[in-house]
Design a protein around this nucleic acid. Sequence first.
DNA 1: CTGTTAGCGCTTTCAA
DNA 2: TTGAAAGCGCTAACAG
Lengths: 331, 331
Amino acid sequence: MRATIMDIAAKAGVSKTTVSFAFNCPDRISRDTYERVMRVANELGYMPDPVARILARRRTGAVGLLLSRPIEDCLRDPHAVEILRGIGSVCRREGLTLEILESARGGMDDAIRNAAVDGIVAIGVAGASGVSGGADIIGRRDLPLVTVDGDAREGTVNVGIDGRRAGAEMMEAALARGHRAIAILSAGDFADGRVAGLTDALARRALPPPGAGETRLVAADATAEAARAAFSDLLSSGFRPSAVLCLSDVQALGVYEECAARGISIPADISVVGFDDIPFAQFLSPALTTVRQSGFDKGARAASALAALIAGGSPESVVLEARLVMRSSLA
Amino acid sequence: MRATIMDIAAKAGVSKTTVSFAFNCPDRISRDTYERVMRVANELGYMPDPVARILARRRTGAVGLLLSRPIEDCLRDPHAVEILRGIGSVCRREGLTLEILESARGGMDDAIRNAAVDGIVAIGVAGASGVSGGADIIGRRDLPLVTVDGDAREGTVNVGIDGRRAGAEMMEAALARGHRAIAILSAGDFADGRVAGLTDALARRALPPPGAGETRLVAADATAEAARAAFSDLLSSGFRPSAVLCLSDVQALGVYEECAARGISIPADISVVGFDDIPFAQFLSPALTTVRQSGFDKGARAASALAALIAGGSPESVVLEARLVMRSSLA
DNA sequence: CTGTTAGCGCTTTCAA
DNA sequence: TTGAAAGCGCTAACAG
């Protein structure tokens, strides 16, 4: 049986309080007592139980990271990894521990219910879509909550980009270079309005919305494989785009692969534009033209906001920059 | 004030026990009572407190992930991300939550001391080097521990590869193709013996160890930037390798960059070999010849072992496959 | 500087 | 099927 604070107190001839002080605020006890207590603690291999401490303090020192998909899927997207890096960075600075919230059993709800955390940052799960019951539970436990790439509606603090503007810039870049037969590879529904942005740009030239006219809108998971398959199908269907806009960089990877396999040259035969600017985008050949957004900053800002919320502050939602960076894949 | 189990018990006219049963083993109480309790719980927005539950049960349902470096650094290496994916995958399956162990204050020790977890998987921190005091603390808290890419000595369960064999295969591939002026980019000290493997292969041909003779051994952080800088310095020093062996794929990225900048053609002018086979390795042009090891499997096996340990079993250390995959960067 | 004493909120054995 | 009561191990007023 592991030694408890009582054992130490007894053996050192002091009270629990004194032992507690020795570990938490040594200044409040005499140097003598401190040493005696610590000696005994060492002898008995004593160490305060973290859980008991948390219960008594009413604070876990941990924040939960709520993912919209299984972590093994999320982490396949380098942009998500960047977000995680940002969150982790701030958490360490704030002395907070990061806990991945998932559960095989009751799904998200159960995970939230049992999470021993002081607050939650939910990534890509806002809106009625992802969090659904989750938001309920979070509300019920009334834990501080910050969303990343979520819906900025309601009172929830959200950190994201102006996807609509970014989407418009992306499409405009393609249109300005004369592209009209455009394939759009989307991944799920982005709460930041990227698709609406594409529509805006098209509308400004009196062109029909994505999927209509000379454009095609295809949905695929945000993985290279899924995107490649979807793109391949599209080509096989006879559609010949002069440009393909990927709403996620990893999808662009799939497009690159398929083009290589079919002997299609980028950007000579077909232009490709991505979204995110994952670290690897610049290593592709040709280097990928893409909408740059900093996942790290997104994560960092979200974690900071959550820390503020936990500390009793009232942080605001933040909208980060997202701009097209021209490289070589768009001609 | 949030409602507690007592409030529910009182309002529902039952005992704490019954309320607890309602939430944990509904079968033990009558359907009637169950519904009454739940109704009251809903009205009052009650939800069992996870921390109190953990304290009473003496089990957290969480495993700690002990990183050797700050998470924002670790996650820059796709191989580490793969390991994390593997761990996360198994954790979810096992109904375990994953907690990143770090702390701004007392460093690793403090993090371990306060971690409310049932066990720990330490990645790349085994041996006297990384864990140092950490191992001590872990031992003292006597938490189940599994290391990844650690030293397989002592009783600790470790999951890794036969780095020595892999290193030998890597070097042999270069030597077999006639390379003699070889640059080796290492990253920290690998506990798996990669460098010893390189030495083995050289020795088999009666060649001097890495760093001596026609070879150069350079250490750099496992990032593209650090590797690029180190490689650049090496070239500027006048050394003209015909092949460069990177003990980590991300370093190969840096070499690719530098070669591109200097107009050096891979593999015509210089051959490059990596280690890890990160997901992007195949997207490089030329595709990277590298030693393939599955980070996902490593993480998964480690997590499984830890789960077994927590469950009272005695899992064994595991040595995973690592084999060279020939692509186009080695000529 | 040190001790007394309530909690913290829930689980779980044992008995009814 | 339900309840009483004894913890789980520690913290933090408050009092001295």
